[in-house]
Amino acid sequence: MRIRSKPVLCNYYVTYRCNAKCSFCDIWERPSPYITLEDVAQNLRDLKRLGVEVIDFTGGEPLLHRQIDQMLGMAHEMGFITTLTTNGMLYPKLAERLQGKIDMLHFSLDSADKQEHDTGRGVACYDFVMESIEVARRLGERPDILFTVFRHNLHQLEEVYQKIILPNKLVLIINPAFEYNEVATGEQLTEQELRYLSDFGKRRQVYLNEGFVQLRLDGGNKVEKPVCKAASTTLVISPENELVLPCYHLGSKSYPIRGNLYELYRSQEVEELKRQEGRLPACEGCTINCYMQPSFAVEVNKYFWKALPSTIKYNYLKGTWKRLLPNSSLIN
Rank of each mutant, 00 (worst) to 15 (best):
L317M: 15
Y207Q: 03
H249I: 01
E263V: 05
E271F: 04
V223T: 15
V298A: 00
A297M: 14
R216C: 10
K322G: 00
S328V: 15
K229E: 14
Y314Q: 13
S232D: 13
G285R: 03
Q205A: 13
P294V: 07
V270Y: 06
L317Q: 11
V223M: 09
L325G: 09
F296T: 07
Y248K: 00
M292W: 04
Y314K: 12
V298Q: 04
P226N: 12
G319R: 10
A230S: 15
Y262L: 10
C228T: 09
A231V: 10
N221Y: 07
T233I: 07
L217V: 07
E263M: 05
R323I: 11
L280C: 05
E284I: 02
R203I: 09
C290I: 07
E284K: 09
C283A: 02
A231R: 00
T320G: 12
G219E: 11
E269D: 13
Q205Y: 12
P309H: 08
K225E: 15
E240G: 10
E272I: 06
T287L: 07
I288Y: 00
G319K: 13
Q214T: 10
N241V: 09
S252H: 00
P294R: 05
R216F: 02
S267K: 04
S328D: 14
N209V: 03
C283F: 00
A307Y: 03
T311K: 03
W305A: 11
I312V: 15
R266Q: 15
E299L: 08
S295R: 07
P256H: 05
Y248E: 08
R203V: 06
W305H: 12
S295P: 09
A297S: 12
K222M: 08
G251A: 04
K306D: 14
L264H: 02
R204C: 07
Q214H: 08
P309C: 11
R258C: 06
I288A: 08
S328F: 13
F296K: 06
T234C: 11
T320A: 11
L264N: 00
C283W: 00
H249K: 01
N221M: 10
S252Y: 04
P226F: 10
G319S: 12
N241Y: 08
C228P: 09
S238C: 10
K229G: 04
E284D: 08
N289P: 04
G259C: 00
